[in-house]
Amino acid sequence: MGVVNITPDSFSDGGRFLEEPAAVSHARRLVAEGADLLDIGGESTRPGAAPVSEAEELARVIPVIRAIRAESAIPISVDTMKPAVARAAIEAGANIWNDVMALGAPSAPETAAELGCEVILMHMLGDPRTMQDDPRYDDVVEDVAARLMQRVEAAVAAGVRREAIWLDPGVGFGKKLEHNLALIAHMDRLVGLGHRVLLGASRKSMIRKIDPAGATAADRLGGSLAVVLAGARAGVAAVRVHDVRETRQALMTQAAIDAAR
């Protein structure tokens, strides 16, 4: 899953693709590099990020989704917490609703059921403004799994097809380094819940905490690839990344090594 952030403040590439031509050009490059699907977002969810109005988010993402769909059949997910934005995005040609709130907004489960699209339910403790304020868990893997399955049942009760639901453990969303590492190390337990799992840790600050030399997002490719390979070994269905070509090469090499065993 290649990332297209149409925002001024995303942690990795905020502002680079805020204008439609730049965002569409970036999407084309990700497709050319081998992305299997694209994730289009118009509101940053980095720690401390300020909310964006519905009108602004729509103005950012809808023209880009329409432009991509006009020239490509690649699956598109819309990264939004807002049901109205998800509805407009699906109508514009998106296929998947990627929701960091796990359909927690009012009317979100009912909207997802009505749209009939695939839905990615992500785990987040609190909201982007507060999620890193001393997050605590009894057992992070069990707690995250239990919360995600609660959201699955809420979605199914509203009419969302169970087979349309993906899970995302939310690496970096309301989690300290030790929480993130435990989730990645035990990703197989989340895969075992019976839903496709999306893993996203690309360029995140957890890598800087392991290697202080990764001071900027651009300095974290090696750590990003390490997480991807661990997730692939655990059986995740997709990885959300900024560096598509390098990620594909790492996965292809790991697969070749496994095939030679």
Results as ranks from 00 to 15, higher is better:
220 R>M: 09
229 L>Q: 15
162 R>Q: 14
38 L>F: 00
85 V>D: 05
93 G>I: 04
242 H>L: 10
98 N>S: 08
85 V>K: 12
197 V>M: 11
93 G>D: 03
248 R>M: 14
187 M>I: 05
17 F>Q: 04
46 R>I: 04
23 A>D: 05
146 A>G: 12
82 K>A: 02
162 R>K: 15
200 G>D: 14
131 M>K: 07
249 Q>F: 00
256 A>T: 14
53 S>Y: 00
257 I>V: 15
52 V>W: 01
167 L>E: 13
108 A>Y: 00
89 A>G: 09
93 G>M: 03
76 I>N: 04
215 A>E: 15
60 R>N: 11
257 I>N: 10
145 A>W: 01
75 P>D: 08
27 A>V: 10
144 V>T: 07
27 A>M: 07
62 I>A: 08
73 A>D: 15
172 G>L: 11
121 L>W: 03
131 M>V: 06
3 V>P: 03
34 G>L: 12
32 A>Q: 14
48 G>V: 05
81 M>E: 11
12 S>Q: 06
90 I>L: 15
140 V>D: 13
109 P>W: 00
154 A>K: 13
104 G>A: 03
245 R>V: 07
105 A>V: 02
198 L>R: 03
98 N>K: 04
127 D>G: 01
86 A>C: 04
82 K>D: 07
142 E>C: 07
175 K>Y: 03
56 E>T: 14
242 H>W: 01
220 R>H: 08
158 A>N: 13
74 I>M: 07
132 Q>R: 07
234 A>L: 08
25 S>W: 00
209 K>W: 00
72 S>E: 12
227 V>F: 06
139 D>M: 09
205 S>F: 00
148 L>M: 12
238 A>P: 04
44 S>F: 00
107 S>F: 00
236 V>C: 12
39 D>Y: 01
9 D>R: 13
147 R>M: 08
49 A>S: 15
242 H>F: 01
5 N>M: 06
137 Y>E: 11
237 A>D: 13
23 A>C: 09
103 L>Y: 07
204 K>D: 08
201 A>S: 15
237 A>V: 07
209 K>R: 15
56 E>S: 13
60 R>F: 01
59 A>G: 06
151 R>P: 06
227 V>D: 10
85 V>E: 04
35 A>S: 14
183 L>Q: 10
126 G>V: 06
52 V>C: 02
249 Q>I: 09
66 R>L: 06
2 G>V: 03
250 A>D: 11
190 L>S: 11
21 P>Y: 02
28 R>V: 13
253 T>A: 14
139 D>K: 07
259 A>F: 04
136 R>G: 02
94 A>M: 09
5 N>D: 08
88 A>F: 02
260 A>S: 12
215 A>N: 12
241 V>Y: 01
156 V>C: 14
224 S>Q: 12
90 I>M: 14
228 V>T: 10
172 G>F: 00
146 A>W: 05
14 G>M: 10
174 G>I: 05
190 L>D: 08
76 I>K: 08
2 G>Y: 01
247 T>Q: 10
85 V>M: 09
125 L>F: 01
209 K>F: 01
97 W>F: 06
106 P>S: 07
135 P>K: 09
121 L>Q: 03
180 N>L: 13
156 V>M: 11
42 G>A: 06
74 I>K: 05
183 L>T: 02
118 E>F: 04
148 L>I: 11
